[in-house]
Write a protein that binds this DNA or RNA. Structure first.
Lengths: 253, 253
DNA sequence: CGCACACTTCGGCGGGCGCCGAAACCTCCC
DNA sequence: GGGAGGTTTCGGCGCCCGCCGAAGTGTGCG
């Protein structure tokens, strides 16, 4: 017979089951706060519609809001929510076929996103995966029996980034894998991933392209990654990008 | 033939956004295959309704089906799907308020589930968390800088369980944390968690209570856990259970 | 061969929900 | 104080979707 409470799961899923609300959450994956109007325009719906959706999401605990004057700023409620949306997106992408033919503009944006982007508060794309790989091959990150920083890794964060990472007693894990939906491989998330990303932005290793999630690796960044991790530019400069695309096109056709 | 569904975040969420489909998935978290009729009766809907829901879930990639004669057996498509549903459930439970007052029967079932149960293919409940804690305090599992088995842990699995765990090169991590929705703490999942659970069932350390996910710790199991991990019965025998409940009731009231 | 059973397909019904525009509310700025 | 702009509330509309029962298909058993 019917037992207790299966309602919660359905309710939570229902919050993300609408295309407009899903677009909101995906946009908010950039980790920043958006106004209601920005999100409405982004999703192509009326302001009134957006307002109702946002109230819905806030009530459901997925979003946190902050009112400032006549603006309603809204952001993801926390890393757990970001992780949930990332996980679901990765899962959805896995089974999903390619959509329609992309426009030139969209293709360009997609290329930039594939090279380097933020994933809520950590690094993703080829850059994020390459850094994760470099940490792993240098023995700073162990992926063979789970996913954790080694003692050397903790020391590396302290020495190179000046970040004393707390032993993960809190809710948030210090290091966790996040499935990259362009690379189909794991990159570093958790507190360590956030610290790394914050450092990279702070020291100008990367800079944001426009207002989106896409990142550009700077000259400073190339030098730093090379010095710290022996990493050659993984984002691919223009020539590499085009060549790689031609290769992929030839192989795929 | 239409290619595999062009799944988006909203579409995936939509699959779980219905109360009946959510009930199906939660029931299937026991890791076994159910027939369409069983699920229909479990959720209290007509067979025709259940049939449509199942087709929906299969097309969406959440469920795998296996036809045998006039039966349609269905199970979760894999560990990734189980993890997704676990994660969403944990997230939902966190913000969820208490439901209505439970019946005696439901309370009894809930108590058994809280003591020990399976979570798809690994151990959960007080038992699962206690084992995870024991592994951690003994240095077999490290949670301070991520979540991974130590070298000693790998050796322990080989020596005590006779399980040679593959270096997690494949898709599935060897060890990962799974948030326990009764204990609100992590227990061991991933390949290692699955091996441990399979061993426990095989060696009769635990046995299934009825046809659900709840488990009973056997005398053999008590001895084994004590010998292998220095663990005293964490499920609480009957006296402990009642005493604990009285304490909790007194403290909560 | 025929009945029983498990499941599926098909209409049809009803409720829920996402959408909009209009109007109200609030804040900021001139 | 008035106007402009961002946000919210309120009806109202339309559609999607979950539900059922009845009829149809396929399997197993006597």
């Amino acid at each position: 017979m019917t037992s207790t409470t299966p309602i919660s799961l359905a309710t939570l899923a229902g919050l993300l089951a609408d295309a407009t609300r899903a677009r909101f959450c995906l946009a908010l994956l950039d980790g920043r706060a958006w106004t209601a109007g920005e999100l409405a325009r982004h999703a192509g719906v009326a302001a009134s519609t957006a307002s109702e959706h946002l109230s819905h999401l806030v009530r459901g605990g997925l979003l946190a809001e902050e009112r400032q004057g006549r603006h309603r700023y809204v952001r993801l409620a926390g890393p757990q929510v970001a992780q949930l949306i990332e996980d679901m997106t990765a899962h959805a992408e896995r089974a999903g076929a390619a959509a329609g033919p992309p426009t030139l503009r969209a293709a360009s944006a997609a290329r930039a996103m594939a090279a380097a982007r933020t994933c809520y508060d950590h690094l993703a794309g080829r850059l994020g995966v390459a850094i994760t790989d470099a940490l792993t091959t240098r023995g700073l990150l162990r992926q063979d029996a789970g996913f954790a920083l080694s003692d050397d890794g903790l020391a590396w964060f302290a020495a190179e980034l000046g970040a004393v990472l707390p032993a993960s007693g809190g809710r948030r894990p210090l290091a966790r894998p996040c499935l990259d939906w362009t690379e189909r491989r794991h990159h570093l998330a958790g507190t360590a991933g956030a610290v790394l990303c914050a450092t990279a932005l702070e020291r100008r290793w990367v800079s944001r392209i426009g207002s989106g999630r896409a990142l550009r690796l700077t000259g400073t960044g190339r030098q730093a990654l090379s010095a710290l991790l022996g990493l050659r530019d993984p984002t691919g400069d223009l020539a590499d990008g085009i060549a790689g695309e031609l290769r992929a096109s030839a192989a795929g056709g």
